[in-house]
Each structure stands twice: as structure tokens, then as C-alpha cells.
Simulated assay, not measured.
Amino acid sequence: MSNTLSYIHPGAKIAQNVQIDPFSVIHDNVEIGEGTWIGSNVTIFGGARIGKNCKIFPGAVISAVPQDLKYAGEETTAEIGDNTTIRECVTVNKGTSDKWKTVIGKNCLIMAYAHVAHDCIISDHCIISNSTQLGGHITVDEWAIIGGSCAFQQFTHVGAHSYTGGGSLVNKDIPPFVKAVRHPISFGGINVVGLKRRGFTSEQINLVMEIYRYVYNRGLNTSQAIQSIESEFAQTEVRDEVLEFIRSSKLGIIKGAPMSLLGEELTADAE
């Protein structure tokens, strides 16, 4: 249901039970799914594809043209999955000819004043906290949590089930299952709390710890660590996810921190 104080272009496709509060603007070539709420003073530009049961809070701007001088007006999209919440004054730019779309997955929470730039791909169940800025072409894998006021360089890759501490400046890839903290950004141990919440067993968590010892705690370079992990550990989904992430990293993964700073992160049992 909309009201006469909002503007909705006749070409927009709005499900019957969408609520649009006063003073919002919905442009042409927009699709909004059932049960979604659009708060006041929201602007949704052409190319937006918003799923079911989303909540978009006042001041958000969805699918504005990219802040990229190479963008030449090509028809692209900004896609938001079902059950995702976009808080106050978040900006989500549409894609460019690189990926043709910007994507925020299902069941995500994007907190106030965050920016998601062109061609970012954010998977399901991610949390991006207040005022965090994602440059273009960034990939965030499922269940990643990013603290407030972080700044991510373009093309960085954030692994699944990872945690990035607030205020981080991120210019390297963050592997899955880890905590990324400190200045400069570096490895801060395993995201044990997050993994337990996601239902990982103690055996799986201890396996993650053992694998990352080879990456960060044995004085090996990346190639040597990969070879050692392949030879020392049986093939499992967890092992292969870590190896594939490291192999495919274009910027290189975050560095290790001095052992004096790691405390008990790599030695504590997961139980």
C-alpha cells in the first residue's frame, strides 16, 4: 500500500502488499516484492530489484548510478534478497559492465550510513555495521560480519564466517573462518564464537585452528603452507574452502600478527 505523498512511477512493479511511507520516490524499472516496507524519504532508482519482506529505512538510496567514471550509462541492476534490512541512509549503487549488477543477498543486515558500491556481491546472512564503506567489486561470502566504520579497498574478498573488527582499513583478502583485526589489518585468530553459533562442531573448529597454524604460525610462505595443508590434512569441505580461497586470492590474504599478540586464539581448544 502506498500513499499520495509518495511518487511511484507507473512503470515500477510493486507487489500488492508493499508499504511505502510518505515522501519516498520510486523510479521506473523498479521491482519490489511482497511484504516489503519502504520508509519515508527513501529513493529507489531504476534497476532496483528488491525481494520479499525487506525493510528499507528512511533516507536510504538504492540503485543510484555508480560513482565510477567508467560507467557509461549501461543498463544494470542493484539486487536485494528476501528478508534483508537496509537501515537509515544506506547507499547501494547499481553495477557496471564488470558484473552488470550489485547484489545483497537474503537475510542480511546493512546498518546505518553504510555504502555498498558498484559490482559488490554480498552473500546471504551477512552483517555490515554502521558507516562501513565497501569500494567497488568487493565480494563478501556468507555469514561474514563486518564491524562499524571499516573501509574496504576495491576488489577485496571477505571469506565466509569471518569477523572484521570495527575501524579496520582492509586492503587484503580476509580468509574464511578468521578474525581480522588491528592496524594494519592482520590475522587475529579463529572466529570461534561465530562458528559455534553457526553449528560447527568442536572437531571442525579445531581443524580450522590446525589449518591456520600452517598459514600463520609455522614460518611458511603461502605456497609452502598450501602444500603442507594438502599433504597433512584429509580432504574435507572446510579444508578445501580454505585452500580454494587462498589460491584464488588476487590481492593476497591478510598477514599474521606477532605471536605475542595472538594470546590463546590458536592454542585454546574449541570445546
Score class of each variant (00 low, 15 high):
200 F>C: 01
48 A>D: 06
201 T>D: 01
62 I>W: 11
139 T>D: 03
15 A>V: 10
12 A>S: 13
250 K>N: 09
13 K>A: 12
64 A>P: 00
258 P>Q: 13
68 D>K: 04
100 W>R: 10
69 L>D: 04
144 A>Q: 01
161 H>F: 15
207 L>N: 01
191 N>L: 08
44 I>L: 06
241 E>M: 15
2 S>A: 10
179 K>V: 14
255 K>Q: 12
155 F>T: 04
40 S>C: 11
39 G>E: 02
18 V>D: 09
110 I>L: 15
139 T>A: 00
211 I>Y: 08
158 V>Y: 11
9 H>E: 12
27 H>D: 15
210 E>I: 00
7 Y>Q: 01
49 R>W: 00
49 R>V: 14
105 G>K: 11
53 N>P: 08
259 M>F: 11
171 N>G: 11
34 E>I: 00
145 I>E: 06
230 E>C: 09
224 Q>E: 15
66 P>G: 12
195 L>D: 01
161 H>D: 09
114 A>G: 12
48 A>G: 07
251 L>I: 13
183 H>A: 13
24 S>R: 02
144 A>G: 01
89 C>D: 15
124 D>R: 05
183 H>L: 13
218 R>T: 02
3 N>R: 01
191 N>W: 07
137 H>L: 01
43 T>E: 14
227 Q>I: 02
104 I>E: 14
230 E>A: 03
187 F>P: 00
166 G>W: 08
18 V>Q: 06
239 R>C: 02
68 D>M: 05
214 Y>I: 00
25 V>M: 05
19 Q>I: 14
46 G>A: 14
162 S>N: 07
133 Q>A: 13
189 G>W: 02
167 G>Q: 05
98 D>Y: 11
180 A>N: 09
235 Q>S: 14
156 T>A: 13
87 R>P: 05
175 P>E: 09
81 G>N: 10
229 I>L: 12
122 I>W: 09
100 W>H: 13
222 T>A: 07
113 Y>V: 04
118 H>V: 06
221 N>Q: 06
94 K>G: 00
108 C>G: 03
170 V>M: 11
218 R>E: 15
122 I>E: 06
108 C>R: 07
28 D>W: 02
31 E>I: 12
46 G>D: 08
267 T>H: 13
59 G>M: 07
257 A>Q: 04
117 A>L: 12
141 D>G: 00
174 I>T: 11
247 R>A: 04
158 V>T: 15
252 G>H: 11
213 R>S: 07
93 N>F: 06
214 Y>G: 00
111 M>Y: 05
62 I>Q: 11
267 T>Q: 12
81 G>D: 10
49 R>L: 12
125 H>Q: 05
53 N>C: 11
18 V>R: 04
161 H>Y: 15
235 Q>H: 03
169 L>T: 06
93 N>A: 09
47 G>I: 07
